[in-house]
């Protein structure tokens, strides 16, 4: 399956990555090759293969439900570009 120019623009938009028109042709080509690889994998019979969720053959360790973190707001907010009354300030979001 080959991707279209529109597909690339949509993927870039969803990932919030700016892609210039010059770059698009290149991505169409390269990403289509990856899809081609997946197409090839699709031909393998996987009827008896359990889908892999993680390359490591282990299972999730659980932690006890205990509060172990202390308030470090001041430390974290030193990295923020703008803060008011303890809130991170960002460009207006509408929903």
């Amino acid at each position: 399956m080959a991707l279209s120019k529109k597909d690339i623009q949509q993927i870039a938009h969803l990932a919030r990555i700016e892609v210039s028109d010059d770059e698009i042709a290149d991505y169409v080509d390269k990403l289509s090759q990856i899809i081609g690889l997946v197409d090839q994998l699709q031909q393998v019979n996987t009827t008896d293969v359990v889908p892999m969720a993680h390359p490591s053959d282990m299972y999730q360790r659980l932690r006890d439900d205990e509060v172990s973190e202390v308030n470090q707001r001041e430390l974290f907010q030193r990295n923020a570009s703008a803060v008011t009354d303890g809130l991170y300030r960002v460009p207006k979001v509408l929903d």
Partner: peptide, 11 residues
């Protein structure tokens, strides 16, 4: 969104 003058505050 209130009182943020065109911006939003995140908690």
């Amino acid at each position: 969104h209130e009182n943020f003058d065109g911006e939003s505050g995140i908690d």
